[in-house]
Amino acid sequence: VKVFRALYTFEPRTPDELYFEEGDIIYITDMSDTNWWKGTSKGRTGLIPSNYVAEQ
């Protein structure tokens, strides 16, 4: 598990995607895809765009 911080707010387009706000901490559990990672924030899990976060 790696810890990342959201650089921007992300509004999901599908139920599989995770909503998060700029500054949120996201725990990444799967980075197997280059563009979409699986992450958890505020008790919810979903896909996030990798270019919206920076490693802490």
Rank of each mutant, 00 (worst) to 15 (best):
V1E: 11
K2C: 15
V3F: 10
V3M: 13
V3C: 15
F4R: 03
F4I: 03
F4P: 02
F4N: 02
R5V: 15
R5G: 03
A6I: 02
A6M: 01
A6N: 02
A6T: 01
Y8N: 06
Y8Q: 12
T9R: 11
T9Y: 06
T9P: 07
T9G: 08
F10L: 05
F10N: 08
E11Q: 14
E11Y: 15
E11M: 15
E11V: 15
E11H: 15
E11S: 13
P12V: 04
P12M: 07
P12H: 03
R13M: 11
R13A: 12
R13V: 09
T14Y: 12
P15Y: 07
P15A: 12
P15D: 12
D16M: 11
D16R: 08
D16A: 13
E17I: 04
E17A: 08
L18R: 00
L18N: 00
Y19H: 09
Y19A: 14
Y19G: 15
Y19E: 09
Y19W: 09
F20K: 00
F20S: 00
E21R: 10
E22H: 07
E22K: 15
E22F: 09
E22A: 15
E22D: 05
E22W: 06
E22Q: 14
G23F: 04
G23P: 00
G23H: 05
G23Q: 02
G23W: 05
D24A: 06
D24P: 01
I25P: 04
I25L: 14
I25E: 08
I25G: 01
I25M: 09
I25Y: 09
I26M: 05
I26D: 00
I26S: 00
Y27M: 10
Y27E: 09
I28G: 00
I28M: 07
I28Q: 00
I28A: 02
T29N: 08
T29K: 06
D30R: 03
D30Y: 04
M31E: 04
M31V: 06
S32Y: 08
S32Q: 10
D33V: 05
D33C: 06
D33Y: 03
D33Q: 08
T34I: 13
N35C: 15
N35V: 13
N35H: 14
W36A: 02
W36P: 00
W37V: 02
W37I: 02
W37G: 01
K38E: 08
G39I: 02
G39P: 00
T40F: 15
T40V: 12
S41C: 15
S41K: 04
S41V: 15
S41W: 05
K42N: 14
K42A: 10
K42M: 10
K42P: 01
K42C: 10
G43L: 03
R44S: 07
R44N: 09
R44G: 08
R44Y: 06
T45L: 07
T45K: 10
T45E: 12
G46W: 02
G46V: 01
L47E: 03
I48N: 01
I48G: 01
P49Q: 05
P49C: 11
P49L: 07
P49K: 06
S50N: 06
S50A: 14
N51I: 09
Y52P: 02
Y52T: 05
Y52E: 02
V53W: 03
V53F: 07
V53I: 11
V53G: 02
V53T: 02
V53C: 03
V53M: 10
E55V: 12
E55N: 07
Q56C: 15
Q56M: 15
